[in-house]
Design a protein around this nucleic acid. Structure first.
Lengths: 205, 205
DNA sequence: GCGTCAACGCAACGATCGCTGCAATAATGC
DNA sequence: GCATTATTGCAGCGATCGTTGCGTTGACGC
């Protein structure tokens, strides 16, 4: 599985100056987030309620109601905190190497049922749930392309790279039973780089 | 918008011989399905409950509880009935023409907020919700490829076609704010056919 | 240390959910 | 047409949800 850092403190949205994200608040936030992840991994998302989450987190329901406006907001927050600072952007020296590594990392990450459950729930809850899931991934992609451009290479747009790489990876993970393995993801990266540099090989399939 | 046929009767899962899918049952089914679609288009999916659906459909809640085991089942049924017999498989005489037309149709269909809301909800509710949404689309893709193969053409696998076409289309619709227009979808189809026949053009982007 | 105030726990409430008796309706086969 | 019975409507119930007021805890500035 891809490297995953611990739950970060103080990321909920920069609070005003009169705020105390100190020890207790941070613990509550972490516990609630963990509870959401666990419950999503265990049962269907439709019967995920605030009191249930609170009970699992060992926190009073009132606290959950007061800190997160709705279940959708909570899910979006969980998704965002889970998908930021999560994956280390590869730096292998070549665009092909970077994209290969990154694509296989992302595909591997989406193998985890917990991760998938979070994405599903965040998508279903609110309209902006999807952006919270992939926002960080998209900027990662952009930084790798920028690096190659600085090296003087020809690079596709971020949109095109997202279409070719993230499109199939997320599509398979969400809609099919075959999540796509590392080799498959590597081929996706190769196809993007090959098509970009003009060295297109006839389809092997 | 893509052509969309009326809600089909008698598709819920072939009932046993001792069943009465006659007039009233069909009407109730249609009304409930329509209520789900309407409510999903109006408000957030998280506060979609059985009694609410029943009230909108003009049906007693008990009926909904008895006919559909859970909200997830109901959403999956709605998605399945919405995405079957929906899009006419194009037959233009060439694979490129077929895929161009099909891709633009699918992309256009996903522009509809109602359709998007159904997919989101079905994905979030149950694990198999995704398959219900794209199962029919995948077979459509397969039939077009089969037709080209019968004509003697070189065709990609269904998996590859789904990766290249459905991947970006569904990804953009679900995760980004730019759903992808007709020209963009047409380019996706062209890229697939070009890469398949070996006539690859250097990236324009 | 010590006071202040944001954040949490507690108790209680109305509303709604999900379900289960039984009666009424209408689709189906004869 | 008529009997059968799958299907729906109705009333009512326990459980849980989402919220509010108030007291308590503990993080932060001094």
């Amino acid at each position: 599985m891809a490297s995953r850092t611990a739950d970060t403190t103080r990321s909920d949205a920069d609070r005003g100056p009169q705020t105390r994200p100190g020890g207790r608040s941070a613990r509550v936030r972490t516990a609630v987030h963990r509870a959401v992840v666990e419950l999503l991994a265990e049962g269907p998302a439709e019967q995920l309620t605030m009191p249930l989450i609170a009970a699992r987190a060992g926190v009073h329901p009132t606290t959950v109601y007061r800190r997160w406006a709705s279940l959708g907001d909570l899910l979006a927050a969980v998704a965002e905190s889970r998908f930021t600072g999560d994956l280390v952007v590869p730096d292998t020296g070549s665009l092909r190497g970077d994209l290969r590594r990154w694509a296989t990392d992302v595909a591997t990450d989406l193998t985890d049922p917990e991760t998938l459950a979070i994405i599903r729930a965040a998508l279903g809850a609110s309209t902006e749930g999807g952006c919270a899931c992939i926002g960080e991934r998209r900027t990662q992609l952009g930084s790798m392309l920028d690096r190659e451009r600085d090296r003087g290479g020809v690079v596709p747009t971020v949109d095109r790279a997202a279409d070719v790489l993230m499109g199939p990876i997320y599509f398979r993970a969400l809609f099919t039973e075959q999540p796509g393995d590392a080799d498959w993801a590597r081929d996706l990266a190769d196809a993007l780089v090959d098509h970009c540099t003009g060295t297109a090989a006839p389809s092997p399939a």
